[in-house]
Simulated scan of single mutants.
Amino acid sequence: MTGATDPRDSIVAIFRAFLRLGFTSFGGPVAHLAYFRAEFVGRRRWLDEETYADIVALCQFLPGPASSQVGVSLGIMRGGLSGGLAAWCGFTLPSAIALILFAYGVAEFGDLEHAAWLHGLKIVAVAVVAQAVWAMARNLCPDRLRATLAVGAALLTLTIPTELGQLGSIGIGACVGWLFIHEPVKPIDARLGFTPGRSVAIASLVVFAVLLVALPFLAETSGSHTIELISRFYRSGSLVFGGGHVVLPLLQQSVVPPGWIGNDGFLAGYGAAQAVPGPLFTFSAYLGAALGPKPNGWLGGFVCLLAIYLPSFLLLIGVLPFWDGLRKRVAVQAALRGVNAAVVGLLLAALYTPVWTSGIQSSTDFGICIAAFLLLVFWRTPPWLVVVLGAIVASTMAA
């Protein structure tokens, strides 16, 4: 391994490296992983191919935003926990700030329910999620069993549209994978570089569990809206497998039914999140800024951003020191295959509601949607450009 434990780069240098990626990494989590590989394996040679693949495998196993967790892992390996924080800030802040500013713009223009450009964003959101379902299903459901598992997870999630439905789908997927999805496993000999000590890891896992249990209780007993907000976003970040698209129904259930934000405003932010670089989890910053009850604005944006990312930080720090042994277990890899298939089902359910049911209202909408899907899947057009084109086309046709 090259350079994984060599602290030649200062915290500022790590921040700058990831800041450049934060401004330029369009295309979603899979594209982000490709950007990371080109920058840190190919150009900077911070680590080798095998070690990078191990880090990606770990972050796919954990709940939370996989691409952000890979970036944090690389920062930790290069500069310790401070390096991980610098990597996260550099990669996350550009899109988070852009979406907070977008929320201020939405507030300034007032009622956007009938805005044509907003409807265009919702239409393109359908195509973007459909592209994610298409790509993930091809890679993660290559046989009848996993395809059936994905459809079953979608049906369960639609029948029980709460966190319980999602958790049940993930749990069933893990059990089915562990029992029935067995494939040859290639021996793994490479070791990771710098990781937090085991005492730090255990403390991190304890804090994660305590917050997951205590925050809902504190929110109920204190009556504090701020604690309730932190609790809901922390829970969303704790329970989602598969990254930003899959967190959509969890966040929708957290903020729309209580009346904190309308469904149109919710989907407007989701559409805008496609047009900015960086991780899709920064959608939480938009929601925090756009909410009706305080804290909102820039303060609410950063509260929600930190709350949704905190569990993935704690889990990553807690598991990283133990991953060398865990990742070699055949049962763990089999369970992960089932979880990945269930994730496809969760995303399929999200494609129907709230994305499709709110975005497609006419044959014209459907036409714009399939054109956007064509551009994304077959013409490989950058998602941000498709989002812009969708807003322009919808506005033009409504004029």
Results as ranks from 00 to 15, higher is better:
Val319Tyr: 00
Val355Gln: 04
Val106Tyr: 10
His119Asp: 07
Gly318Asp: 06
Thr195Gly: 00
Ser312Gln: 07
Gly79Val: 04
His114Thr: 12
Thr162Trp: 00
Ala201Lys: 06
Gln252Ile: 01
Ala96Tyr: 01
Ile370Tyr: 14
Ser236Arg: 07
Arg146Cys: 05
Leu305Arg: 03
Val185Ala: 09
Leu81Ala: 12
Ile227Thr: 15
Ala341Asp: 07
Trp379Lys: 14
Gln361Lys: 11
Gly79Ser: 01
Tyr309Gln: 05
Ile170Gly: 00
Leu287Gly: 03
Pro29Met: 04
Pro187Met: 01
Gly259Asp: 12
Pro295Tyr: 00
Phe102Ser: 11
Gly173Lys: 07
Glu39Asp: 15
Ala57His: 01
Leu306Tyr: 10
Phe15Lys: 06
Asn340Ser: 13
Ala116Lys: 03
Arg337Gly: 02
Ser169His: 09
Val106Lys: 09
Glu113His: 13
Glu228Asp: 14
Gly269Asp: 13
Ala391Gly: 06
Ala289Asn: 10
Leu21Ala: 07
Arg20Leu: 14
Ser25Val: 08
Phe15Leu: 15
Asp54Tyr: 05
Asp324Trp: 04
Ser395Cys: 12
Asp189Tyr: 03
Pro7Asn: 10
Val386Asn: 00
Ile308Pro: 03
Ile370Leu: 13
Cys304Glu: 04
Gly22Glu: 06
Asp6Phe: 11
Trp298Ser: 12
Thr353Arg: 12
Leu164Asn: 07
Ile261Asn: 13
Leu314Thr: 01
Glu50Gly: 07
Ala201Met: 11
Ala107Arg: 14
Pro161Met: 00
Ile227Arg: 13
Ala96Leu: 03
Ser224Phe: 00
Trp178Val: 08
Val343Pro: 00
Tyr104Arg: 13
Arg144Asn: 08
Cys369Val: 12
Ala87Glu: 08
Pro7Trp: 00
Thr2Ser: 12
Gly367Asn: 05
Val339Arg: 03
Ala399Leu: 14
Leu179Phe: 05
Arg191Thr: 13
Ser238Glu: 06
Ile55Phe: 08
Leu229Thr: 06
Thr396Met: 15
Gly171Arg: 00
Gly152His: 06
Arg380Gln: 14
Met397Ile: 13
Ala125Asn: 05
Gly79Met: 04
Ser224Asp: 07
Tyr286Met: 13
Leu121Ile: 02
Glu49Pro: 05
Ser95Cys: 14
Ser199Pro: 01
Ala103Cys: 08
Asp9Lys: 06
Cys304Ile: 08
Ala86Tyr: 01
Ser199Asp: 13
Val133Phe: 06
Phe302Ile: 13
Val56Trp: 09
Phe23Leu: 15
Val343His: 10
Pro277Cys: 10
Glu163Arg: 10
Val355Ser: 08
Ile317Cys: 11
Val330Ile: 12
Gly64Tyr: 02
Glu183Trp: 09
Ala4Ile: 11
Leu374Met: 13
Leu62Ser: 08
Cys89Met: 15
Ala372Asn: 09
Gly165Met: 06
Ala66His: 00
Ala103Ile: 07
Phe313Leu: 13
Val388Thr: 10
Pro184Thr: 10
Gln69Ile: 05
Leu205Thr: 02
Gly301Cys: 01
Arg144Tyr: 06
His119Ala: 05
Thr353His: 15
Gly120Asp: 01
Asp6Val: 11
Ile172Tyr: 04
Ala335Arg: 06
Gln131Val: 04
Leu385Asn: 09
Ala272Glu: 12
Pro249Gln: 09
Leu374Gly: 11
Ala190Met: 11
Ile368Cys: 04
Val210Pro: 03
Ile317Asn: 08
Leu85Ala: 15
Leu158Pro: 07
